[in-house]
């Protein structure tokens, strides 16, 4: 499925189930999400994490409803399954798409300006450097007997200074390789929107409405 469509669908589903309280639909969405995740052949460790990590916020919300409100077991169940639906539907989109495919699709199919697409992509590829930079900043602080925590302004300050430096370099490098902000581009890897992308997107949404409405009437 087209990456932009896939993410749009995942977000729309998550948005819609935020406003509805039908636990069966939530559960069904979680199961569908799980099946899609399984097709991407995740590692066993990731699968275990996918099951157990949502358990924490899900049970927290459910227990809080049971102890701190009069909303009852049904609503607790709705919230519990809602968290699982969020996580599984959301992960079904992220685990089956690469960053560059999504960005390319956003540029070619939804026509966001290419400076945003390539600017984001260029910066995103610095991710490993950034993770190590955070470690370097903290290590440098430790050497001076200065522990840097999430609440230390110095940590963010140094991170922003590094970002300033790199953004300047990267933008210059891209410009010197011929990147021009306004110029039209041709694409090496073309990502198209096919008729079945529309079918899956609209079909899923219609099915969701029917299911929600059907269970709502009961």
């Amino acid at each position: 499925m087209n990456p932009s469509f896939k993410f749009l669908l995942a977000v729309l589903i998550a948005l819609e189930i935020s406003f509805t309280s039908t636990w069966i639909v939530n559960l069904a969405l979680a199961v569908i999400g799980l099946l899609l995740i399984l097709t991407s052949r995740p590692t066993f460790k990731r699968l275990i994490l996918l099951f157990f990590v949502p358990l924490i916020p899900a049970s927290a919300l459910a227990v809080a409803i049971l102890l701190q409100s009069n909303a009852g077991v049904h609503f607790a169940l709705v919230l519990f399954t809602r968290i699982y639906a969020y996580v599984f539907v959301g992960s079904a989109a992220t685990l089956t798409t690469t960053v560059s495919d999504l960005v390319m699709s956003l540029e070619q199919n939804t026509h966001i300006p290419s400076k945003f697409a390539y600017g984001f992509l260029g910066a995103f590829n610095l991710l490993p450097k950034i993770v190590s930079e955070v470690n370097i900043i903290r290590a440098a602080g430790n050497m001076r007997g200065q522990a840097l925590h999430v609440w230390s302004p110095q940590l963010y300050f140094k991170a922003i200074l590094a970002s300033l430096d790199w953004s300047e370099n990267l933008a210059e490098a891209m410009t010197s390789h011929g990147f021009s902000e306004e110029a039209p581009r041709t694409y090496f890897k073309q990502i198209r929107v096919r008729w079945w992308d529309w079918l899956v997107l609209l079909g899923s949404l219609v099915l969701l409405q029917v299911a929600l409405f059907g269970f709502h009437l009961q």
Binding site: K115, F116, Y118, G119, F120, G122, A123, F124, L126, L127, I130, V131, V134, Y156, A159, I160, A162, S163, L164, W166, S167, E168, L170, A171, M174, T175, F179, E181
Partner: peptide, 17 residues
């Protein structure tokens, strides 16, 4: 501009991390 976008993304990545 390209430089702003890259800077914004880099800052966002720091926060994302």
């Amino acid at each position: 501009h390209l430089r702003d976008i890259i800077l914004l993304t880099l800052i966002a990545i720091f926060f994302g991390v």
